[in-house]
C-alpha cells in the first residue's frame, strides 16, 4: 500500500499564447495514499499549478481522453500506476501530431483517417421489424475490434503514421475498418476493400507492432490489418 510520497516529474510545457518554444518543466508533487494512478498525480499537480493542461474524463480507461507519452511510451494516464513509473516521470504529448498546448495534441488528422474508412455499418436491405440475427460465433468475430476507445496511442506510436499521417490510415482506423469487414451484417466488403487498395492506406503497415505494444485495451491492430491483407489477396485470386 502506497503512503504519502513525493514524486518528481519532467513535463513538456508549451502555451502558444506566451511561450516562444516548448520546454521541459521539472516539477514535483506530494501524493496522498489514495493517489494510485498517474492521472491522480496530474490532478494533484493541477491543483498546485492550474496552468498545466491535459485532457481527461472518465478516469477508468473507456473514454480515451488522457493518452500521452509516459516515460517514452504511449499510454493512458488513468490506467498507469504512478508508483510503477521510473522518476522523474517524463510526460510528453502523443508523438507525431501537432501540439496545441502542453500535452494536448490536435487530433484532426487521426479522426480524419478514422472517418475515411466509413466507420458505420452499411446494409442496404430494408430494415426488418426486429433485430437482424447474428450467431454468437459470428458476433465473437467482433471481439477485440469494437472495444477501441480512439485514444490514438497506437497510431501515434506507429512510424508509418508519423511519416504519412495524411495517406496511411493508421492502426486505429484499420482496426475499425476490419471491425466492419468482420461484421456479418455489413454488406460493403468490396467497397471497403477498394477504399483501402492503395500503396499507402493499408500497405504502409510494416508490422512493426508498436500499436499492439501500447494499446491500453490490449487490442491487436496488427492482427486485424493482417486479416484485411488476407482478404485483399483472396479476392485478387
Amino acid at each position: 500500500m502506497s503512503s504519502k510520497r513525493t514524486v518528481q516529474f519532467k513535463i513538456y510545457r508549451y502555451d502558444p499564447d506566451k511561450d516562444d518554444k516548448p520546454y521541459m518543466q521539472d516539477i514535483s508533487v506530494e501524493l496522498e495514499e489514495s493517489d494510485k494512478k498517474l492521472l491522480d498525480a496530474l490532478v494533484r499537480l493541477k491543483a498546485k499549478d492550474d496552468t498545466l493542461s491535459f485532457r481527461r474524463s472518465c478516469r477508468e480507461g473507456v473514454c480515451g481522453s488522457d493518452a500521452m507519452n509516459i516515460n517514452g511510451k504511449n499510454g493512458l494516464a488513468c490506467l498507469t500506476g504512478v508508483d510503477e513509473l521510473a522518476q522523474p516521470i517524463t510526460l510528453r504529448p502523443l508523438p507525431g501530431l501537432p501540439v496545441i498546448r502542453d500535452v494536448i495534441v490536435d487530433m484532426t488528422q487521426f479522426f480524419k483517417q478514422y472517418h475515411s474508412i466509413k466507420p458505420y455499418l452499411i446494409n442496404n436491405d430494408p430494415a426488418p421489424e426486429r433485430e437482424r440475427l447474428q450467431s454468437p460465433e459470428d458476433r465473437e468475430e467482433l471481439n477485440g475490434l469494437y472495444e477501441c476507445i480512439l485514444c490514438a496511442c497506437c497510431s501515434t506510436s506507429c512510424p508509418s503514421f508519423w511519416w504519412n499521417p495524411d495517406k496511411f490510415v493508421g492502426p486505429a482506423g484499420l482496426l475499425a475498418a476490419y471491425r466492419f469487414l468482420a461484421d456479418t451484417r455489413d454488406q460493403a466488403t468490396s467497397e471497403r476493400l477498394d477504399n483501402l487498395e492503395d500503396p499507402y492506406r493499408l500497405f504502409r503497415c510494416h508490422s512493426i507492432m508498436n500499436c499492439v505494444d501500447v494499446c491500453p485495451k490490449n487490442l491487436n491492430p496488427t492482427k486485424a490489418i493482417g486479416k484485411i491483407k488476407d482478404m485483399m489477396v483472396r479476392r485478387a485470386v
Binding site: 458505420y120 455499418l121 430494415a127 426486429r130 440475427l133 458476433r139 466492419f180 461484421d183 455489413d186
Partner: peptide, 19 residues
C-alpha cells in the same frame, strides 16, 4: 433498441441469434 442493432451496435447474442 432494435434501431441501434440496425445501426450496427454489437449486442451479445443468444444461441438463436437474437439480442
Amino acid at each position: 433498441v432494435v434501431e441501434l442493432e440496425h445501426y450496427g451496435m454489437p449486442f451479445d447474442r443468444t444461441d438463436n441469434g437474437k439480442i
